[in-house]
């Protein structure tokens, strides 16, 4: 099984974090659905040419975060937890909102102005999905 994970030495982040992030990304985009079997620690170590102990650390932290489950003697699997992908998506949302907030700050927008713009965009999406319903009471800025 080829995971396609790639460890970069030009990346300042430690190798175990790179492994964690790439696995989380695989799961978040749905390449690795719940129940999907991960490569064994030794197989992934051989494939990425990263020490067994580093891959083990990445798996342990993913396990602790509830992202994967390890069944003794059977291997590691993407957690079945329904909230998992939701949680990953929430994390992704926070990342993107943080980037938007940063851009807004640089443009000189206040937090309220930023929130109003977001509300407006969300409302526009709502209206598209349910055109027959009346628009919300929120004012657009």
């Amino acid at each position: 099984m080829h995971s396609g994970l790639l460890i970069s030495h030009a990346d300042a982040r430690p190798m175990y974090l790179q492994i964690i992030e790439q696995i989380q990304q695989r799961i978040a985009v749905g390449d690795w659905p719940p129940g999907h079997e991960l490569p064994s620690i030794r197989a992934l170590a051989a494939e990425t040419r990263v020490s067994v102990i580093t891959v083990k650390r990445a798996y342990l932290e993913l396990e602790r975060a509830g992202v994967i489950v390890t069944r003794q003697g059977r291997g590691s699997f993407v957690a079945e937890r329904a909230g998992l992908s939701l949680e990953l998506h929430r994390q992704e949302l926070d990342t993107q909102l943080a980037a938007a907030a940063d851009l807004g700050r640089r443009l000189g927008l206040s937090a309220d102005a930023l929130a109003d713009r977001l509300r407006g965009l969300a409302q526009a999406l709502e209206d598209q999905a349910h055109p027959h319903e009346p628009a919300g009471s929120e004012e657009e800025s």
Binding site: R42, A43, A45, A46, R49, V52
Partner: peptide, 12 residues
């Protein structure tokens, strides 16, 4: 060489 060495420890 690193590929071969990491291949060795597939066997625990």
């Amino acid at each position: 060489l690193l590929v071969e060495l990491m291949d060795v420890v597939r066997d625990d």
